[in-house]
Amino acid sequence: MTLLITAVSLIGGFIIAVPAALVRINRVPVLSQIASAYVTVIRGTPMLMHLFLIYYGLPILIDSVSRKLNLGFTSVSIPIVYFVFVAFSLTAGAYMTEVIRAGIQAVDRGQVEAAYSVGMTPVQTFKRIVLPQALAVSLLNLSSEVIGMLHGTTLAFTVSITEINGRANIVASTNWKFFEAYIAAALMFWGLTVLIERVTARIEKKINTFNRGGVA
């Protein structure tokens, strides 16, 4: 579950982050301001708050829209985990926007012009020339993002547990078994973190071959 939530929110975050970063770099009117506000607000508030806002706020919104349009559909039928996906994608998206924006800006303009001069379209240029290098530049930051999200998924239990136990007090149910489970979970997180760091180091080594001596 942890892995699924991490994966989905990172992919969701990525899908939000790339257009948001582009909109900010190209200073698209209105959209650029929206993206910038989104990034500032999300980064300025804790992850747990996003989760609660989406978990308690989104259903109200969905229900009122559904009622207005007579869709005969209520938010109760949506599994909790979907709200977690939305909330964490929004969180990840904001952090990734900044990382990817910095990465894109690190790719020199000359290569973009070279791609155009060869006859590539702006979309081809972005996908094949700019984005791969931007991701390479952002790698370290993205990897800490992945780890952050992984650890952040623990917060998801705050909503599901409240749900399952009918708002029972979590602390009350703490016993030794619970503690053991926590230690096991902690070890698992640690293992995954080490794994991610290893993978990052491997990719980094590869990137270093083409960056040797370069500034990027």
Partner: peptide, 16 residues
Amino acid sequence: RKKTAMVFQHYNLFKH
């Protein structure tokens, strides 16, 4: 652009 090609002062090769 498809009919022309350019050689740049600073090469501008695709670094990756």
